[in-house]
Amino acid sequence: MIDQLFDLQAKATSHQGYQAWFTPQGQSPLVNLYQEGDQLTLTAEIPGVKKTDLTLEVKDNLLHLAGKRQRRSAGKEQLIHRERGGGDFDRWLSLPFKVNPETVSAQVQDGLLEIKLEKAASEKATSITLH
């Protein structure tokens, strides 16, 4: 019983435990979305994924994120404990508004993907001059 309590506490304060509760798909990268006015910043944890193994597409208010995780050959080694996820991933994300595909920028650094998106002109509010 005490061990179970400690296990629950450990899960609650670990990325792994957090993922178990909130991840829609087991192997998909976890994504955070930040909105400031007409700007969106999306970050995703993709440790070990090379830039060349990543596919990004955006259309209207949908973002497609797909990638391949390369497994290193084990050789004579034996895996004695595994916590990291593996395999390919493919995820579609619904954004809060249509974005301008011309202004999307993305970079991968230190295993973290950061995408900056801007609201499409057709979605922006138009101010009306009062006469």
Partner: peptide, 12 residues
Amino acid sequence: YLPKADQWLGPE
């Protein structure tokens, strides 16, 4: 937070 880790063991 605790980072995820894999552990491997071999002759090396």
